[in-house]
């Protein structure tokens, strides 16, 4: 008994010594937490605005609470319903197309054995990632313009008789956005897949070669299963981002004629919240987006937990 008490006392003294020794870590942590509270956690209190008729003069505490009125307005607004559809559709299309392109590019590049060929291609593939969306949409716009390369090719091969104004028709908008995302990020997204392929045990390929497998079979039975864990983890991480991927391209490429398919939740928030100064409505739309995103992450995580060992948390 007595010894235990003594030990406890020792422990406590050790503990204090340890705390003293960690003083620097504690001080840094304090400032980091303070910074995090101000810039990341404090804005969460702003969510209250979604349930208020927020007036900047009255502040968060003085403004009148209106319950779910703002949400009711949102879901009765035919535009917002379209906006939700657009955000989901483009988010999903982009996720699927960019993932397929990245995996495809990684696998095909991995089949190139000569370094002098592989290296430059890889370097080129990263280039678009370093360009801003302003530059990318500008370049894309020129390529698709009446005198641009796409119309030029289509005219030359007689596929069309007159140049198409691609940005005037809603049917072209989603494919254009998907293409823009693939063009910009394929090489970059492939980096992780290439790393995963490199990590596959080479003896597997050797064994397959002895068994007479051709390259396509090796890809199917060794490479693809080898990158499956990476694929699943990235898919998990990106599912939560599906709704976040809808702002810059759509904002920069959209115009009056394609509004019905180009507007996303973020653009809607910007329009109502910032331009019209209806902070409450903007916040409500943003809150809806956040809630759905979190739901998606939780669902994806639960699904992954059920079907394999891959999990985010």
């Amino acid at each position: 008994m007595a010894q235990n008490k003594k030990k406890e006392k020792m422990d406590r003294r050790e503990m204090w010594k340890e705390i003293k020794r960690q003083k620097f870590l504690m001080i840094v942590s304090f400032f980091m937490v303070a910074y995090g509270i101000v810039f990341y956690y404090w804005p969460l209190t702003g969510w209250l605005m979604a349930f208020q008729n927020y007036k900047p003069k009255k502040g968060l505490l003085g403004s009148k609470f209106v319950g779910l009125d703002k949400f009711r307005f949102l879901f009765e607004d035919a535009v917002f319903i379209k906006v939700i559809r657009n955000t989901f559709a483009m988010g999903l299309i982009n996720l699927v197309t960019t993932t397929i392109m990245a995996v495809l590019f990684a696998i095909i590049l991995n089949e190139v054995r000569r370094a002098w060929l592989k290296k430059p291609i890889q370097t080129i593939s990263y280039l678009p990632h370093f360009l801003s969306w302003i530059v990318v949409t500008g370049i894309l716009h020129d390529s698709l313009s009446a005198t641009g390369i796409i119309n030029d090719i289509l005219l030359r091969f007689g596929i069309i008789k007159q140049a198409i104004n691609f940005f005037a028709f809603p049917k072209y908008f989603w494919p254009i956005v998907a293409f823009a995302n693939c063009w910009k990020e394929t090489g970059w997204n492939a980096i992780i897949y290439l790393a995963a392929i490199t990590a596959i045990d080479p003896s597997l390929y050797e064994a397959a070669a002895i068994d007479g497998a051709d390259r396509l079979q090796k890809i199917k039975y060794i490479t693809l299963p080898g990158i499956k864990p990476t694929f699943l983890i990235l898919l998990l991480m990106n599912v939560g981002n599906v709704l976040n991927a809808g702002f810059e391209v759509q904002y920069l490429l959209g115009n009056g004629l394609v509004q019905s398919v180009s507007q996303t939740i973020d653009i809607y928030v910007l329009k109502w919240g910032i331009s019209q100064n209806d902070y409450s409505l903007g916040t409500a739309a943003g809150l809806f987006k956040s809630a759905v995103s979190i739901l998606l992450i939780v669902m994806a995580n639960a699904l992954a937990k059920r079907y394999s060992e891959q999990r985010l948390f």
């Binding site: 939560g240 943003g286 956040s290 995103s293």
Partner: peptide
Amino acid sequence: YVNGGMIPV
């Protein structure tokens, strides 16, 4: 994973 969004920020 959680942020206030455009308007609160």
